[in-house]
Design a protein around this nucleic acid. Structure first.
Length: 154
DNA sequence: GCCAACGTTGGC
DNA sequence: GCCAACGTTGGC
């Protein structure tokens, strides 16, 4: 059987909430708390073995700080049913969960952050501009050709 | 703190 | 289905 080439993604997290160092320590994590349908749907399109760039957002300086890999798919996000969670969704019912997520594992932390200004150049011709001002999507696909360049820089 | 971008909500 | 109001993201 032919080994399928992985797809590449970018997922954002505020380092105050969950950082690359926390993931490095945890080794793996559920990427839960996603409450945006388009971002959720991107997770549904992931496959085991896909590579994910970890992006630190809303911090100084913002940028790609490491690499992860998808290890599990279609996991019901437990936080949607936790009343004390800030991700609690009273409209979601256990018999028909609205939010699901993937599990990722730590691969590596960048020696040097790949900064937002550098990403703006890399993604300048991409239609799903990762770095577009006001882009509220916390999960985005990354084109293979761009991903290859990023991999050389992190 | 400001604000651009844009998703969500709810009245009609 | 339209759209105004509102809320969130996230860079600066």
């Amino acid at each position: 059987m032919v080994q399928q080439e992985p797809s590449y993604w970018l997922m954002k997290s505020e380092p105050d909430a969950y950082s690359i160092d926390t993931l490095k320590n945890d080794k793996a994590t559920l990427w839960d708390g996603i409450r945006n349908y388009q971002a959720r749907n991107f997770m549904r399109n992931m496959h085991i073995g896909d590579k994910v760039f970890f992006y630190h957002s809303n911090c100084k300086p913002p940028g790609i700080v490491g690499l992860m890999e998808v290890t599990d798919l279609n996991i019901v996000d437990p936080t949607q049913f936790e009343k004390d969670s800030k991700y609690y969704d009273p409209k979601s019912k256990p018999e028909n969960p609205r939010w699901d997520c993937v599990k990722v594992k730590y691969i590596s932390k960048s020696n040097k952050l790949l900064s937002l200004p550098e990403l703006k150049i890399l993604f300048s011709e991409d239609e799903l501009l990762v770095v577009k001002k006001g882009n509220r999507l916390s999960i985005l696909p990354v084109r293979n050709d761009i991903a290859k360049i990023i991999l050389e820089k992190i």
